[in-house]
Design a protein around this nucleic acid. Structure first.
Lengths: 203, 203
DNA sequence: GTCTATAACTCGATAGAC
DNA sequence: GTCTATCGAGTTATAGAC
C-alpha cells in the first residue's frame, strides 16, 4: 500500500479525483472536494489540469481502459466457445471485483453522451461482438449447442458479470448481506456464471 | 395520449421534472430546464414544490414505486417455481421496456445514499427474496432442479432483466443496433430469459 | 396562480504573491 | 509549484406586483 505522502502531487490529485468523480459523476463532483481529498487547494488543481472537464476526461479514460479492452481481446481470441465463456466470465468478474464502482460510473457517462463514444470506445476497430457471434452461430449449425440468438447469449453473459456491481447496494439491501458476504458471492460468480450458461446451452 | 395543454400545472411540472431528472440526475438537472419543458417559469416551480430536493424526492418515489413493488408481489406469490420465473421475467421486462431509463436513475441514487433506503424501499416488510429462496431450496431438495445457490439464481434473473436497460446505449454501440432493433430484442427477452434460466436448472 | 426582477449563493476559474 | 484572495458565471430561491 502506497501512502499519500509518497505520491507526487499529480498522483494525489488523480487518486482523489477518481474517488470523487466515480462517486458523484461529472456534474455531482466538486473541485473543492477533490482538492480537500488530495490535501491541496483548488488553484493547484487547475495548475495541473486546466479545467474540471479535462481532469474528468483523464479519469474517465482510465476507467474505460480498465473495462473495455479485455472484452475485445477475449471475444476475438481463437479458443473453443466454452473455454471462451469460462475465461471471459472469470477474468471479467475479477476485474470488476477490483473496481466495483467503475461500471456504474462508465455507463452513466455513456448514457449522457451516447454519440460521443461511438468512436472513442473502439476507435476504428469493429465492435468486438462479431467474431464471437459468428463462433456461436457455427456451433449451433454444427449441432454442438442448442439454438439461441448470439446477441441474447452475449447480453446474458455480460449482464450476469456486470449487473451485480451496478446494483451492488440494492442487492446488499435486498439480500441483507455485508461487504464481506458480497465479496464472497462475487468470488463464486467467477466460475458460477459460466457453469450456469453452459448448462443452459449444452446439448 | 394526453396533451400538455390538458394537464394541470402540477402535472406538467411532474412530467417535465421526470424527464429532466431521469436524464441528468439530481445534480445534473436544472430547474430552468424543467421550467422550460413545463412551459412555465422557475418561480412557479418553487411555488408548487418548495425546493429542487423536494421535487426530486417526488419523482424518485414515483420511480421506485414502478420498479419495486412488482418484485415483491411475484417473488412472494404462491405459484410453482417455473411459472414464477416465467411470470417475473415477462412482467418485469415489460415494465422496464416502458420505462427504460428508470433503472439506471434509481440505482444511481441508491448508490449515493445506500443507508437512506434500507427502510424506504421495503418499509417494515421482509426483503422479498426469502420466500423465493426457500422455494428454490425446496425444489432442489426434492430433486426437481439442479443444485444452485438461490441467491445466485435470483441475481442472474434480475441481471438479465435489468442490465440491458442500464447498459442500453453501450449495448446499442457494441451491437450496432438502432432504437427499433433494440426494442425488438427486448420484446424477445420477455420469454427468452425464462427459457434460458429453465434450460439451465431443469433436470 | 402566475409572472418579472433580483437577491443569495455555489462553484469553476484566474490573478498575483511567494 | 503552491498558496490566498477574488472574480464572474450560472443556479436556486425569494420578493413583490398583478
Amino acid at each position: 500500500m502506497v501512502k499519500k505522502k509518497d505520491l507526487s502531487t499529480e498522483e494525489k490529485i488523480l487518486v482523489a479525483a477518481k474517488k470523487v468523480f466515480v462517486e458523484n459523476g461529472l456534474s455531482g463532483a466538486r473541485m473543492q472536494d477533490i482538492a480537500d481529498k488530495a490535501e491541496i487547494n483548488k488553484a493547484l488543481l487547475h495548475y495541473y489540469f486546466k479545467s474540471k472537464e479535462k481532469l474528468f476526461e483523464v479519469i474517465f479514460k482510465e476507467a474505460t481502459a480498465k473495462l473495455f479492452p479485455k472484452i475485445n481481446t477475449i471475444f476475438s481470441s481463437d479458443i473453443p466457445l466454452f473455454d471462451k465463456i469460462r475465461q471471459f466470465t472469470h477474468d471479467y468478474v475479477e476485474i470488476v471485483i477490483e473496481n466495483p464502482y467503475l461500471p456504474l460510473f462508465v455507463l452513466n457517462e455513456i448514457n449522457k453522451q451516447p454519440h460521443a463514444f461511438s468512436q472513442k470506445l473502439f476507435g476504428n476497430d469493429q465492435p468486438p461482438v462479431h467474431k464471437l457471434s459468428a463462433q456461436i452461430e457455427k456451433e449451433i449449425k454444427k449441432g454442438l449447442i442448442k439454438p439461441i440468438s448470439p446477441a441474447h447469449l452475449i447480453i446474458n453473459m455480460l449482464s450476469m458479470c456486470v449487473f451485480p456491481f451496478v446494483g451492488k447496494p440494492m442487492i446488499q439491501l435486498v439480500m441483507n448481506i455485508d461487504e464481506i458476504q458480497f465479496r464472497n458471492m462475487m468470488e463464486q460468480r467467477k466460475t458460477m456464471i459460466a457453469d450456469f450458461i453452459i448448462a443452459s446451452i449444452k446439448k
